[in-house]
């Protein structure tokens, strides 16, 4: 999260609401380790990453939902070969991503 503080502050200062997605579990080989974070704003901004680019688009959509409902959620991304180019991880691992609103939602 450290590396995202600057972006998060800038978005919040311009009135955007922010959700934070964090890799909380990794099984097998995955592109980013536990603790990797990505921030998303309701203005459509995105910084950081939770995978090497495989699932960021899907996480972005989930984050919009989390911002709309104000409720955190845990999402599991796993992987079959057919999915690898959809919303799976190309390298075959499984990750769990926890997505939460930074300021309580509403």
């Amino acid at each position: 999260m450290k590396e995202l503080l600057h972006d998060i502050d800038a978005w919040r200062q311009s009135g955007e609401r922010v959700a934070l997605a964090t890799v909380v579990k990794v099984e097998g080989s995955a592109p980013r380790p536990v603790g990797a974070t990505m921030a998303v704003s309701d203005g459509g901004n995105l910084a950081g990453s939770v995978s090497g680019g495989c699932v960021e688009t899907a996480v972005f959509e989930e984050a919009q939902d989390v911002l709309a409902t104000g409720k955190p959620k845990l999402i599991r991304y796993g992987i079959s070969d057919e999915m690898a180019w959809d919303v799976g991880l190309a390298c075959g691992g499984t990750i769990e991503v926890y997505v939460e609103p930074l300021d309580g939602g509403q």
Partner: peptide, 12 residues
């Protein structure tokens, strides 16, 4: 980080 204050405190 369901409260702003937690984020602010962690950031600080």
């Amino acid at each position: 980080m369901t409260e702003t204050s937690v984020y602010e405190r962690l950031k600080s």
